[in-house]
Amino acid sequence: MRTTVELLWIEGRIERWIRFGHIVQETIKSRSRRTVGFDPGAVFAFVRWTASDYGTVESRIDILRAVIRGEAYATVPCVAPGGESLLHISGWPKVEAVLAVIDRIEALGIAPEDVCPDHWRHVHHRLTAGLTPRPYTKARHAAWLKRREIET
């Protein structure tokens, strides 16, 4: 069972895009619409932005883990069936803060989809509380990789 995400890009009006994640399937429906798929267990970031004549109506980022058949999941618009929510942030200033966290992780040479899921939860909680998240480090990542190795 793959998790699919409906993407749309209408310049200046609606933008739904993937910030990171390993896409394993893509179906182009038109110049502005496509569907992408993720294997079970894959982590990805889905950004949604919508504007009207009067400015931004919606800006959100969700970092989700694609679920395995039978697992519980959260429903998210445009994501079928849904995913395990690691982070859900609304409001452009906080969305920008998450994008900056992702940029800093990539600057370390770490793929954001390989980051410890607990870190994304930490970022969610800190930003929701109006606090600055602690940075992800190479040492933390090495510890996560060892933990993951032991758990499997």
Rank of each mutant, 00 (worst) to 15 (best):
E6M: 13
L7H: 01
L7M: 09
L7W: 03
W9K: 12
W9F: 13
I10M: 05
E11L: 09
G12N: 13
G12A: 10
R13N: 10
R13E: 06
R13Y: 07
I14T: 06
I14H: 05
I14E: 04
I14P: 01
I14L: 09
E15Q: 04
E15T: 01
E15H: 03
R16P: 03
W17I: 11
W17A: 10
W17S: 11
I18H: 07
R19A: 09
F20H: 02
F20A: 06
G21K: 01
G21N: 03
H22Y: 15
I23V: 13
I23Y: 10
I23E: 09
Q25E: 14
E26G: 10
E26F: 08
T27S: 07
I28P: 02
I28Y: 04
S30I: 01
S30R: 06
R31M: 07
S32M: 10
S32L: 08
R33N: 14
R33G: 09
R33Y: 11
R34E: 07
T35A: 05
T35N: 12
T35P: 05
T35D: 09
V36S: 04
V36I: 10
V36Q: 00
G37E: 11
D39Y: 08
P40D: 13
P40M: 14
G41W: 05
G41H: 07
A42K: 01
A42D: 09
A42F: 05
V43L: 02
V43A: 00
F44K: 00
F44H: 04
F44L: 07
F44Q: 00
A45T: 00
A45Q: 00
F46Q: 03
F46N: 02
F46E: 00
F46Y: 04
F46R: 00
V47R: 02
R48L: 01
R48S: 05
R48A: 04
W49A: 00
W49L: 05
T50G: 10
T50N: 11
T50P: 06
T50W: 14
T50A: 10
A51T: 04
D53R: 14
D53T: 14
Y54C: 13
Y54R: 12
Y54H: 13
Y54I: 08
Y54V: 06
Y54F: 13
Y54D: 12
Y54A: 07
G55K: 06
G55D: 04
G55N: 04
T56K: 09
S59M: 07
R60L: 03
R60P: 00
D62V: 09
D62W: 15
D62E: 15
D62S: 15
I63S: 01
L64Y: 00
L64R: 00
R65V: 11
V67S: 12
I68T: 15
I68H: 11
I68D: 13
I68Y: 11
R69K: 14
G70W: 14
G70L: 07
A72Q: 14
Y73A: 03
Y73C: 01
Y73R: 08
